[in-house]
Amino acid sequence: MNGTIQRPSLRERCFRRDRRSVPAARRFALRNLVDWGLAECERASDVLLCVSELATNALVHGVPVGRQFMVVMRLDGDTVLVEVHDSGDGMPHIAQAPGEGGDEDEGGRGLVLVAALSAKWGVRERGVGKIVWCEFTLRSGASTAPSTMPVRG
């Protein structure tokens, strides 16, 4: 061994169908970014926002009663992949342009943010449900102190 500390590059955690799971998923993502030395990178807040949006979508639209959703984060070089797995029906899509879906339509705007902030995003089917994912290219900063990256709940 060369003395280099190996950090796990794959992290996953399941969350209950509960409104408190969204801030918990965000804290999970922040812990991973801190552990990977990426909490101070310029895109860390984008990653955290997208985790919140995807977790919210899973909670509201993709997790049947009595089930959970899972957040998976993978570090590959300077690329972070975020996946949110759920067991719900349907495939998420970006909301229509304003005026086309009616003013009362509140859904779909989270994916607009995910599409705008991430390098890539998409949806894959799985045995039961789906995986909504997004990818970011990050560069680490000088410090990884979590106190500079607040987690709101």
Results as ranks from 00 to 15, higher is better:
Thr4Val: 14
Leu38His: 00
Arg20Ala: 15
Leu33Asn: 13
Arg124Tyr: 05
Trp36Thr: 11
Phe136Met: 10
Gly101Met: 04
Val51Cys: 12
Gly153Lys: 03
Glu12His: 02
Val114Asn: 02
Ser87Asn: 11
Ala24Trp: 02
Asp86Lys: 01
Pro98Glu: 04
Gln96Val: 07
Ala29Gln: 04
Val84Lys: 00
Asn57Asp: 15
Gly141His: 02
Pro64Cys: 07
Phe69Asp: 05
Arg43His: 02
Asn2Val: 13
Gln6Arg: 08
Ala97Arg: 01
Thr56Leu: 15
Leu111Asn: 10
Leu81Val: 10
Met91Tyr: 14
Val80Cys: 06
Ala115Leu: 13
Glu40Val: 00
Pro98Tyr: 02
Asp78Ser: 11
Phe28Glu: 09
Gly37Met: 00
Leu59Tyr: 08
Arg67Trp: 00
Leu54Ile: 02
Glu12Gly: 10
Arg139His: 04
Met73Glu: 10
Val151Gln: 14
Leu59Ser: 10
Asp103His: 02
Pro150Lys: 11
Ile5Arg: 09
Leu75Phe: 10
Ala142Asp: 14
Gly101Lys: 03
Trp133Gln: 05
Ala39Pro: 00
Gly102Lys: 11
Ala39Lys: 00
Ser9Asn: 10
Ala29Tyr: 06
Arg11Phe: 07
Ile131Lys: 02
Leu49Gln: 06
Ala29Val: 07
Arg124His: 04
Glu40Pro: 00
Gly141Lys: 03
Val34Pro: 09
Leu48His: 04
Leu10Arg: 07
Pro146Cys: 10
Val84Tyr: 00
Phe136Ala: 06
Val34Cys: 06
Val47Trp: 02
Lys130Leu: 14
Cys50Ser: 12
Thr137Met: 05
Gly107Ala: 13
Val128Asp: 13
Thr137Trp: 05
Lys120Met: 11
Ile5Phe: 12
Leu30Arg: 08
Asn2Trp: 01
Asn2Pro: 12
Gly99Val: 12
Ile131Leu: 09
Asp78Glu: 13
Arg67Phe: 06
Ser21Gln: 05
Asp76Met: 06
Val51Phe: 09
Val112Ala: 05
Thr56Ile: 13
Glu83Gly: 09
Met1His: 12
Ala97Thr: 11
Thr148Asp: 15
Pro98Gly: 11
Val128Cys: 15
Pro150Tyr: 02
Gly153Phe: 09
Gly107Trp: 06
Asp86Ser: 10
Phe28Cys: 13
Met149Gly: 09
Ser45Val: 12
Ala145His: 07
Arg109His: 11
Glu125Asn: 07
Leu33Trp: 00
Glu42Tyr: 02
Phe69Thr: 01
Asp103Met: 05
Glu135Pro: 14
Phe69Lys: 01
Ser52Tyr: 01
Ser45Glu: 05
Ala25Pro: 03
Ala44Ile: 07
Ala95Met: 03
Gly127Asn: 03
Ala58Trp: 01
Glu83Trp: 01
Gly66Phe: 07
Glu135Ile: 12
Ala39Tyr: 00
Ser140His: 08
Gly153Val: 11
Gly141Ala: 14
Val51Trp: 00
Ile94Thr: 11
Glu135Arg: 04
Pro64Trp: 01
Asp76Arg: 01
Leu75Thr: 08
Pro146Arg: 00
Val112Gln: 08
Glu100Asp: 04
Asp78Met: 11
Asp76Lys: 03
Arg19Pro: 15
Ile5Tyr: 09
Val34Ala: 09
Cys50Phe: 05
Arg109Pro: 14
Gly108Ser: 08
Arg26Ala: 15
Ser143Ile: 15
Met1Phe: 12
Val47Glu: 08
Cys134Val: 08
Leu81Ile: 14
